[in-house]
């Protein structure tokens, strides 16, 4: 396996991408923020417009580079640039948004080609704020996917949660059937 891996974090604004990358990175992450405009009604006072970046040092000297996609569709063009060379996708879905199931479908669709070539792992965040929909509703939608996708409840602020999510993705990549 190559020594360095590139993993992309994506998901709607506020799902916890910046937080998750921060929580798991061994470095101080670099993120370029611009103040939110008012039409973005989010509790956050900054929102990511460029990208988040962090590194995980693995036990065996591998390094995993983490990149977060800017969350707003006006920066959509960057997504395709960002995923170049990516080995896998971490999708964070904010369970407290109006239609998180639809959010998941949107992102799975949007990154469909990429996921087909690589692997994806899904973390449902903010379940402490909104406990519904429940994980089995997500699972039901995932039954349509060709692959068995790791899906966990994740609190993006909790390193261990993010770590398990990322490890599930890395191990899936490790064991993928080479067609």
């Amino acid at each position: 396996m190559k020594k360095d891996l590139k993993i992309i974090f994506t998901g709607p604004v506020g799902a916890g991408k910046t937080t998750a990358i921060n929580a798991i990175s061994d470095t101080d992450t670099v993120s370029t923020n611009e103040s939110s405009t008012d039409e973005l009604r989010y509790r956050k006072n900054t929102t990511t417009v460029a990208m988040d970046y962090g590194i995980i040092n693995m036990v065996d000297n591998k390094r995993v580079h983490l990149y977060g996609t800017p969350g707003q569709e006006r920066f959509d063009f960057m997504w395709d640039i960002l995923i170049q060379g990516g080995m896998g996708l971490v999708l964070l879905v904010d369970n407290a948004r109006p239609d998180p199931l639809e959010d998941m479908q949107f992102f799975l669709q949007r990154f469909g080609d990429f996921i087909q070539r690589t692997r994806v792992a899904i973390g449902v965040t903010r379940m402490d704020i909104s406990s519904t929909p429940r994980l089995n509703e997500y699972q039901a939608l995932l039954n349509d996917q060709t692959r068995n996708i790791p899906l966990f409840e994740v609190d993006a602020r909790v390193r261990q949660d993010v770590s398990i999510l990322v490890q599930s993705l890395l191990h899936s990549l490790d064991h993928q059937k080479r067609e």
Binding site: L142, N148, P150, E153, I164, S168, H171, S172, H175
Partner: peptide
């Protein structure tokens, strides 16, 4: 399907075995 492993007791190699059985 994957169990909700962030909320379950993890034993050694749990994620690895799960990934293997999920993939092949």
């Amino acid at each position: 399907r994957w169990p909700n492993l962030t909320r379950l007791l993890l034993l050694p190699n749990t994620l690895e075995i799960a990934a293997l059985w999920a993939e092949q």
